[in-house]
Structures are given as structure tokens and as C-alpha cells.
Write a protein that binds this DNA or RNA. Structure first.
Lengths: 153, 153
DNA sequence: CTTCCTGTTCTATTACATGTATAACAGGTA
DNA sequence: TACCTGTTATACATGTAATAGAACAGGAAG
């Protein structure tokens, strides 16, 4: 697993961390039950403050994608006790999808080509994604497999 | 044309304005040559400062989607003199698409259903979008057809 | 020419977001 | 006991968002 950050991006660091983990979930790279590194550990690997990582984990928890406790750290799992999935999610998601697709069309990309690109990405997520895990606990990120792009210029 | 804002959103106002206009472009609701309202006019309609609208127009101009001059105000058009389209756009766009799709899959939406939703949105943009305009100048927004959601609580 | 509306630029202020930092506390593990 | 975990609180520096007022330049219309 490669967790890459771009320090020069306008996207906040905690958002990038959250995004990369969500993508790993969709890819099936992080199966249900997989352990995530501790906030301090990941912060150390990425050379960012552990509060920043904590903020990313907070996002994921509020989205119902991970479960966190002191005993076992952060674990990939939809927590049954964190309430039902947000019922407003589909509509909000669709609105964001609409904006993103409009951007591509406005920039001149052919609608057909756009559809094709979507298909390619969905193929990568395929049918092995999330909630089909075997509850095996693979390591998500040990020491030294973090990559940071950009940096001091 | 309905330009709706959500003041309670975490999305900045200038970004919302930019997003709505991009969507109108993709829909073909704003054809090439269409006049956009002046920053002061639109700011007045939306009850926001004209600097905020100006920021949205700045974004659109840097994206090459509109052309602005003192004579005719803001006009929908890819300005030939504002340089070629950003060559990095397709890759950056694909990265954002990947994140957005991953979010849906991680939340449990079926990949097939996701693909279907994408198709629906693209249908709406269809083949009438952008750069097929007749250079006719329709009014984009007159007085009173702006809608603001949310507000003081 | 004068008046009006346009975009553009400059400065300033208030409020919030971001990221880092230090410290302390609670709970499970070795 | 010692260690590592998550959690919370506070503080600080920096940047962004949004508003506001003022001024200037250029085209349009009287």
C-alpha cells in the first residue's frame, strides 16, 4: 500500500489522507477488519502531526467507514452502533457527481469518453470492494511505505 | 435559469457560483456567446458581495470557460488568446473522479448502480452542451430569478 | 462632455480553517 | 510499572473566505 501525499496541493492534508483510505477501501485493498496504523504512527510515517491524521480518522468514523477504540486502534468496519448510514448521502453524492461530470463536459471532453473513463475506474473497484473481506487482519501500513510528493521549494 | 446557493453549506459561495455555471454550460443552458450578468448585478441578485462573484468569474476565466472584458461584460466562450487548455486537466480530473467514485463504492452503493447514475447525469448533458451555441445572446439571469437556500438560523 | 455602468485593483477587517505544538487524561497491554 | 493507544484541551501561526469601501479605466448613451 502506497499512501502518497502532495504537500503543495490545495487539498488539505487530512482530506488527502481520508481520500486515499477511501480509495483503498473501494479497491478492496483494505478489507473489513483490517487494522489501520495508529494516528501517531501514521503521522510519523507521513511526517505530519498526529492531530492531522486524527482529523482524517474522525472524518472516516463520521462517515461510518471505520471503527475506533483504544484497545485495537482504528479498524475498517461499518460500526453497527454508529447509527444507520446517512440517508442524505445519495443525494449529496449525486450533486457532487453532477458538478464533476459537468466540469469535464464543459472542458470539451466527449460525454462518451467520460463514460468510458468512469467505467475504467469502476473496473478497478470491481466486485472485491469492501464488506467482502474475510476478517483477516493484514497490516495496512508499516514503517516506511509512505510517500510524500512535493515539499519545500 | 435557477442559480441556487446554500449559505449553510461548507462549500464556499464563490465555488458554488462557479459550480452552478459550469453545470449550466454542460447542460447547454448557456450556449457560446451567452452573456452573463455583471458581477454587481449577480451579487445583488444573490445578496452577496460583488467581490465574491468576481472571484467566481476569475475561476471560470482561468479555466478558459468564459471571456471577460469591460465592453461586453462576461461572455461564455473559450478565449483563444488565453492560451491552450490546461494539459494537466485530464489527469487531475481523473484523480478527483476516482476519489468520488470510491466514496460511493465504500458507502455500499453497487458499482453497477453507480454506473447507471453516471449515465443519467450524462444524458442530461447530452450532445447539446457547450461550443454548439448559435452565438445568440440570451439573458443568463435577469432580476429575481436567483434562489438562496438556507440563511440565518 | 457628462453621466452611468462595466471590470479591475487596492486596502482593510472579521471570522473561520488549517496545521503544528504541548500537555494531560483514560484505558488496555506487556 | 512502563508503554502505547485514543481522546481532549489549549494555544499559536498562517492562510482563506467574505464583506466592505474606495478609487481608477474604458465603453455606452444621454
Amino acid at each position: 500500500m502506497q499512501l502518497s501525499l502532495d504537500v503543495d496541493s490545495d487539498v488539505p492534508i487530512y482530506q488527502q489522507i481520508r481520500d486515499r483510505i477511501v480509495e483503498a477501501l473501494a479497491e478492496g485493498e483494505l478489507a473489513e477488519g483490517s487494522a489501520l496504523p495508529s494516528t501517531r504512527q501514521l503521522g510519523s510515517d507521513l511526517a505530519v502531526n498526529f492531530h492531522t491524521v486524527n482529523k482524517a480518522y474522525d472524518l472516516l468514523r463520521h462517515e461510518g467507514l471505520i471503527r475506533v477504540n483504544r484497545k485495537s486502534g482504528a479498524v475498517v468496519r461499518r460500526d453497527p452502533e454508529s447509527g444507520p448510514p446517512d440517508p442524505a448521502f445519495p443525494d449529496e453524492w449525486r450533486a457532487r457527481l453532477r458538478t464533476l461530470l459537468a466540469e469535464a463536459v464543459a472542458q470539451g471532453l466527449d460525454p462518451g469518453e467520460v463514460g468510458q473513463r468512469v467505467g475504467e475506474v469502476l473496473e478497478g473497484f470491481g466486485h472485491e470492494g469492501f464488506s467482502h473481506g474475510e476478517s483477516g487482519r493484514e497490516e495496512f501500513s508499516g514503517a516506511g511505505n509512505a510517500v510524500v510528493k512535493g515539499g519545500p521549494t
